[in-house]
Each structure stands twice: as C-alpha cells, then as structure tokens.
Amino acid sequence: MNVIKLDHVSKTFGSEDTGVHAVQDVTLHIAPGEIFGIIGYSGAGKSTLVRCINLLEKPTAGTVTVDGRELTRMRSRELRQERKKISMIFQQFNLMPSRTVAENVAFPLKGTGLSREATAAKVKELLELVDLPDKAGSYPSQLSGGQKQRVAIARALASDPKVLLCDEATSALDPQTTQSILRLIKDINQKTGITVVVITHEMAVVKEICHKVAVMDGGHVVEEGAVFDVFANPQQPVTRSFIATTSNLSKIDELIAAGDPLVAVKTGEIVARLNYSQSNTSEATISEISRRFDVDVSIVFSNVEIIDGQPLGGLVAIISGDRVAEAIGYLSEKNVMVEVLKRG
C-alpha cells in the first residue's frame, strides 16, 4: 500500500503546443515511512512535481492519490481538508513575519476545535521536538536560517500530517545547518513514521537521508530506485553527473585530459577506475589481485562512502604487470566494475 501514488502525471503551463511542459507523464509510488528524494537540476520540473502532490499545482493529466484518496477528483473544500495531512516546508521558510514563533506553529491549528490550553501544550511540545523551546515569543526576523527552518518544521508537524514535503528545504542553509536540519528530518521520520518527500539539487542531501531516489530531467523521471542501487549503478548521464559532484573519482578525467605526470603510464600499465557496486568494498580485492596475478597497484584516488548503511565507492589506480588483463577479468568476476581510462 503506497501512501503517495502519482500516475501518469503531467503539468503543462500555457497551451499544449507552445506551453512549458514542466512535468511529463511521471509515475511514482512512495511507500509509507519512506524518505523519498527527487533530484534534478533547476528547471527539471521537480518543484512543480512536488506541488502536484498537494495539488498546489493542478496536474493537466494523470491522477494523484494520497493516503488512499484521489486528490485529483476532489472539490476544493474536500481538497483543503486533505491538505492538512500533507505538510510542506520551503527553501525560503515562509514563516509569517508578523506572528511570533508560537503563533506561527499554532497557525494550522486554528479552526481544529483545539482549546487554547491544548494548543499551547501542543506548540510547546513541537518547539521542544525541534529544539527551540525558548524561542516561543521571538519573531522570525530574530532567528537564524536554521532556526527558521526548525520553526517551519514544527509548524508543518502541527496538523499531525501523514506526509512531509520538503522543497529545497536546506538549499538556503550553510553545510553545518543543512546537516542538523537533515538529521532532524531523519529523526522525526524514525520517531513518527511520517513519509517524507525531499526535493533537492544536491546529491549530498539524497545520500544523507533518502532511502529511495528519483532523478528528474526535462520533466521526466529518468531513473528511480533505492539510493544505493542508483549510486552504485547509475544508468543515465544526468545521474552520473550528479554522482560525480559528490565523489572525487571523476577528477582523474581532468588529470588525464591535462596530461598530468601523476597519470603518466609506461607500456603495459593502465589507469583504471574500479567501482564497487555490490557491498563487497570491505573485501581485500586489491591485495588479492596483487598477490594472485603479480601486478603492482598504485592507488591515485579512492572514495568510499556509507550510503543507506552500505559501503559504496571505488578507486582510481595505476595497474602494471604482465598479467593486467587477467587481474581485470578477476575483478569483474568479483562484481567490481572496471573502467580502463588510459593504456600505456
């Protein structure tokens, strides 16, 4: 049972012929409790797509179903009720400047029939959850960016939603603050089981908290899957270029192109990029081939990361010896992807 189901969703701004096709035939199913990342460069349609989930943008085609109820066929009054279950946080925080932190958090609670005392208690509890218990009386203008986003998260959780949509929620924050906000979202996800959709253009964000990821390009979802699989086995150029932004293994291409002496190879030597696509990074494959095939392996770069609890990464090495070809064959057998970048 998926909590969010987008089926063949398209959104065109303007006319069908001359308009902008922001989202084109996207089908995504998101399971309860999942943190689902949608990554793409600006203009890829990801912000429009996330607004199709709560129908802030009405899809021009397709259906949107959240928590078993099809939003795309609802009248506006009914839709507004459903939206209380789908909260959203924004890049620019969007706190009400004329209201205090406590009043901002209480904003969605108005008209829910909650008494003044119950509202105050709930606000207090939420501010403690986001670690800002002493800021209740402050105005947003007195807070830092990270604190503003924490208040926005508290406000988003006030209506006890099933889904939290994060639209570039950390893009306006510095790296440390980004980390703390992502940790907070992860904690809340683990504590409450809320389903989270994260829109971002930073692979680091996806790597940090997402279980699954969809890659968007030109309004289409071009690749989708568990974060580890997508990182380990990127199929599309756009995905590879995102992964390159978080790894230094692609630097070798620049070095080779520049003819750097670091990668100068003699006859019989090769420069190769090894990618550990299965979770076998910990095995001693390098010393293994070195012993078995009597080759020298000199590591130029290496980059191993923990993604979704599993090690993933690779290295760039210069391999030399008489039995290089055999060594490569052996590595392939062991599910290590070998890319020969340069031969001497």
Binding site: N54, L56, R77, R80, Q81, E82, R83, K84, I86, S87, M88, F90, Q92, N94, M96, F107, P108, S159, L165
Partner: peptide
C-alpha cells in the same frame, strides 16, 4: 505580501 506566504497557507489547507 510574499507569494511564498500565500503558498504556505494554501498548503496548510487555508480557504
């Protein structure tokens, strides 16, 4: 008034 505030309110189910 910033359009972002209006969007935030709409996302919370405000009429």
């Amino acid at each position: 008034v910033s359009p972002g505030l209006v969007e935030a309110a709409a996302s919370m189910g405000c009429s």
